[in-house]
């Protein structure tokens, strides 16, 4: 499936924080928290919700302030 430009941008930002498994992480967030959305189909209207979950779930994996940073960077794309 072709990835939207926005999904590509979010992935690029997230990779800097989460490494090569970022796509797996993002797909998991959209699947469980954005009504089963395929990550590749990410649109602007999903960004606020995704940003919120990037902070919540990201805090379990990386430092809280880094998760906050990632969340804000993604929210800025909206």
């Amino acid at each position: 499936m072709t990835m939207t430009d926005l999904a590509q941008k979010v992935l690029s930002i997230s990779t800097a924080y989460l490494g090569p498994a970022a796509k797996m992480f993002l797909a998991r967030q959209t699947k469980y928290h954005l009504q089963g959305l395929e990550y590749e189909q990410l649109q602007k209207e999903h960004l606020n919700e995704l940003s919120k979950w990037l902070f919540i779930s990201g805090s379990l994996i990386i430092e809280k302030d880094k998760a906050q940073e990632l969340s804000q960077l993604v929210a800025k794309l909206a």
Binding site: T15, G19, A21, I61, I62, K66
Partner: peptide
């Protein structure tokens, strides 16, 4: 190192 560890965690969770 943090990126590497985060990826490892995600993959292990998966």
């Amino acid at each position: 190192f943090g990126r590497m560890a985060a990826s490892l965690k995600i993959m292990m969770m998966e």
